[in-house]
Structure formats: C-alpha cells, structure tokens
C-alpha cells in the first residue's frame, strides 16, 4: 500500500511540484494544506502516514503536539527509532524540509520520500534565485538606460558617446556603471526603476 503523505506548505507553485514529484515516486499525496488549516481536524480525518512541512512554518509546533498524542500520529523525523539517517536529517533541515512519519514506514521509504522533497525544495529555491537575479539585471539595465538618456540630452551626445562617458567616469571613480547611474538619477531627483 502506498504511503499516504500530507503536505503543509504556503507556497503554491512549490507544493504543486512536490506533489507531482512524490506521486511519480509512488507516494500517495492525500492533501496539501496551508498555515490557516485546522491541523487537528485534517490529521484526524486524513490519518496520513507522513507529513512534509515547510520548516519555516510555525505550525510545526502543532505537529509536535500531535506526535505526542499517540501512535497513530506521525512523529518528528529526529525522533525516529531507527535513526540511520542523521546526515539526511541535516540535509533536509538545511533545505528547509521537515518531515513527520509514523513508526511503521521503512527507513528506505523515508529516505526516498525525503530525497524527493529535498530536491523539490532545492530546485524551487534555485529557480527563485535565478528569477530574482534576472529581475535585478533588468532593473539595473533600466537605470543605466535612463541615466544614459539624461547625459545624451544634457551634453548633446550620441548614444555610444554617452555610454563611453559613463563607463570612463565609473572607472575613474571605481564604481560600477549601475552605481553611477543610480547616483546620477538620485542627484537629479530622477528616481531609478
């Protein structure tokens, strides 16, 4: 019988990807809930064998209490009787994954479930990181363009000449072109972005 997993996460995109990845690995995701859900009711109704929870959620403390209530509730990973996975637990903690599992799941299945979850969380984070870098580059690009347009207007320069002028000034002042552009824009009251 497939292991029944409950996901507690507030990030929609991530939990959808995790749900899919777990399903592909042969787990049965019974539900995905967020912070506002009544975990006492959810756990009672769905009786999952395992819970994967975003380690950054304060609701973890509610799961701790449930784990204390009796055998049928999943226990925190760190409490597993058969703990042959201290490295995995550390790795999961670093990736922001917390897991609660019932005693009866085999260590191999716990490992597999955790590996899937960790890599899902990590690829989500990598994706977000890339996006914010791209956005930053874009907004830098815009600031530089605005500053360049300003110089073209003020000094009657062509586009290339204005850019060369900015590059030279930035080099002389040991700053990046973006920093120079920002300074120019803020001095002239022309907000960047």
């Amino acid at each position: 019988m497939a292991i029944r997993v409950l996901i507690v996460d507030t990030k929609n995109e991530r939990s959808q990807a995790l749900e899919q990845a777990l399903a592909e690995a042969g787990f049965d995701v019974v539900s995905t809930v967020d912070e506002q859900d009544d975990l006492y009711v959810t756990m009672e109704e769905l009786q999952p064998d395992a819970v994967i929870v975003d380690a950054a959620l304060p609701s973890r403390d509610t799961l701790e209490h449930l784990g204390q209530l009796g055998r049928r509730y999943p226990k925190p990973m760190i409490m597993l009787a058969e703990e042959e996975t201290p490295d995995l637990t550390q790795q999961a903690t670093r990736a922001g994954v917390s897991a609660y599992v019932v005693d009866s799941i085999s260590p191999a299945l716990v490992r597999s479930m955790l590996n899937v979850s960790i890599s899902s969380f990590e690829s989500f984070r990598a994706l977000k990181g890339e996006l914010s870098r791209t956005q930053e580059t874009l907004s830098q690009r815009r600031a530089i363009d605005r500053a360049k347009a300003m110089i073209m207007e003020m000094h009657g320069l062509g586009e290339d000449a204005a850019y060369q002028y900015m590059r030279k000034t930035a080099m002389n002042r040991r700053m990046t072109i973006h920093e120079l552009a920002q300074e120019l824009l803020s001095v002239t009251g022309n907000k960047g972005k």
Binding site: A55, L57, P58, S59, R60, E64, I78, T89, T93, S98
Partner: peptide
C-alpha cells in the same frame, strides 16, 4: 527560527 521544534532540531543536529 520560526518554531520551537526548529530550535530543537538545530540544537540536536549540532547546527
């Protein structure tokens, strides 16, 4: 951290 459980894990895992 955001939960007491998180602090406990951090202490017990030596992080």
């Amino acid at each position: 951290e955001t939960s007491w459980a998180g602090l406990r894990d951090g202490m017990q895992l030596g992080l």
